[in-house]
């Protein structure tokens, strides 16, 4: 028991955050200019719209050892591209339940709507998500695949 908890403490999970250019990336910028902190293991990738995120990107992240993946887009009805975030919502809920079925817990994946004015929300969401991922610890589910790929390379 003792050992396990100790291990968890040392481990720093990797979190990939996809942010749409118009709302959430700007929200993250606002979190920055308002100096609202969140853990450094959250790393942001900028995409034009949350609907640009292919399920393959999420799979790739987990396969490469990410422990959590979060997508952030404009609020429903506010999408810069009118309907993009609706596609995101539909696609991702399907993907996430599929991943859950494969053993990547639902809590490791998330879609959040963060507007360009919601710097505080961005930081709160990332703090909360990082906390959840910390609790869950390392994602070992796709480890076999990782090993195999390294051998192939």
């Amino acid at each position: 028991m003792q050992e396990v908890t100790e291990q968890k403490k040392e481990y720093v999970p990797t979190i990939v955050a996809f942010c749409c250019n118009w709302c959430s990336y700007a929200g993250a910028d606002l979190a920055g200019s308002s100096r609202l902190t969140y853990p450094a293991n959250v790393k942001i990738i900028r995409v034009p719209c949350s609907c640009r995120v292919n399920p393959m990107f999420v799979l790739k992240a987990f396969q490469r050892g990410a422990d959590g993946v979060i997508l952030c887009g404009c609020h429903p009805g506010d999408c810069h591209y009118v309907t993009g975030n609706y596609y995101t919502r539909r696609r991702m809920s399907l993907l996430f339940s599929f991943l859950n079925y494969m053993g990547i817990e639902k809590e490791r994946t998330r879609v959040e709507w963060v507007s360009a004015a919601e710097g505080a929300k961005f930081s709160a969401v990332m703090n909360d998500f990082a906390k959840k991922i910390n609790e869950l610890g390392e994602n070992k589910r796709l480890q076999d695949l990782r090993v195999k790929e390294e051998r192939d390379e």
């Binding site: 995409v47 393959m56 050892g65």
Partner: peptide
């Protein structure tokens, strides 16, 4: 985007 993901991970 895939290579960005790889690099972060």
């Amino acid at each position: 985007i895939m290579s960005e993901v790889e690099e972060i991970c």
